[in-house]
């Protein structure tokens, strides 16, 4: 609908995705993935799919981030490759 918002959100989505797979520090990657999920939720809501956006915000940006960080606290925190 609001195509400028759409283009901006999709651009940020691509930036977040590339940053998340190319960054070395895993904690930063998790936080960027959380930002990715938040933008994805906004995109879902913008596409009139409120239910999916709701789930994305609750699970993607909320629970998944917490579980990833809890897992990270038990491991090293640096990527080898």
């Amino acid at each position: 609908m609001i195509w400028i918002l759409d283009i901006t959100m999709l651009f940020f989505l691509v930036v977040c995705a590339i940053a998340a797979i190319s960054i070395k520090d895993l904690l930063s990657a998790i936080i960027i993935l959380s930002a990715y999920s938040l933008i994805m939720a906004i995109v879902w809501v913008e596409m009139h799919s409120v239910d999916v956006g709701f789930t994305e915000a609750a699970v993607g940006a909320g629970i998944t981030t917490v579980l990833f960080i809890a897992t990270l606290a038990r491991t090293e925190g640096r990527s080898e490759d």
Partner: peptide
């Protein structure tokens, strides 16, 4: 979704 929020 409600269960996830409650758990969160």
């Amino acid at each position: 979704q409600g269960g996830v929020i409650f758990g969160a």
